[in-house]
Design a protein around this nucleic acid. Sequence first.
DNA 1: GCAAATTAATGATTTATTCAAG
DNA 2: CTTGAATAAATCATTAATTTGC
Lengths: 112, 112
Amino acid sequence: MILEEMYRSGVRTPSAQQIQQITAHLSNYGRIEGKNVFYWFQNHKARERQKLRRRLSRHYQLLCSGHSLPHHQLYCMQDATAFPQSRHHATPTHSLHLVLHSHPTLFLPSHQ
Amino acid sequence: MILEEMYRSGVRTPSAQQIQQITAHLSNYGRIEGKNVFYWFQNHKARERQKLRRRLSRHYQLLCSGHSLPHHQLYCMQDATAFPQSRHHATPTHSLHLVLHSHPTLFLPSHQ
DNA sequence: GCAAATTAATGATTTATTCAAG
DNA sequence: CTTGAATAAATCATTAATTTGC
């Protein structure tokens, strides 16, 4: 409970000092050492991420399976109107037909 | 998610062709064009770097603020009680007492 | 009720990824 | 291109919960 409280209030990868302190504090309740605290945060962080990813994944699956849009992500892919023209140079001329390196302007649909 | 998958597997600055293909693929999910893909990779690369830099910065600040240890580990060197014996190999013998680095097992007390 | 069996959670370890520096 | 360092991701191992047949 204590660790989760800490996590909830922002602690993610505590430094050595922090770990020492936390360990000291928790020692009041039982045998514990730094590595346990270290592992706890590693695992907890990872598994929270995991949960989030699972949620998102499910979310996307729904999205792609023809159901209503979830409201984030993808909205950014929408119409792509106003386009930032290159600030510094006209379309680079050093590219020839060999162009491997991309510049956004190269991807402006030529017919739009 | 798809783009991150690509990034994770090595794509950093996709060529024009690659961008075209990626765009085509992603078009199944919504309106998107090459420049969006281009920007995504630019930004993602940059922001990954940024994250790392922040980490390092924080790291060094701690280091220099007299708080000795850079991050975690070392706390492991403290009481040196029961330590996790590696499942697969005997205790590593390379455990200089100077070690600052990462893995808990690296801090197996040399005398155990 | 109550073990054996099965499944979920958590702890600990290993492997992969990431960037910067050399 | 390689290496070092941090740490995220994947995996292994153990413990806690839950289910099942009796």
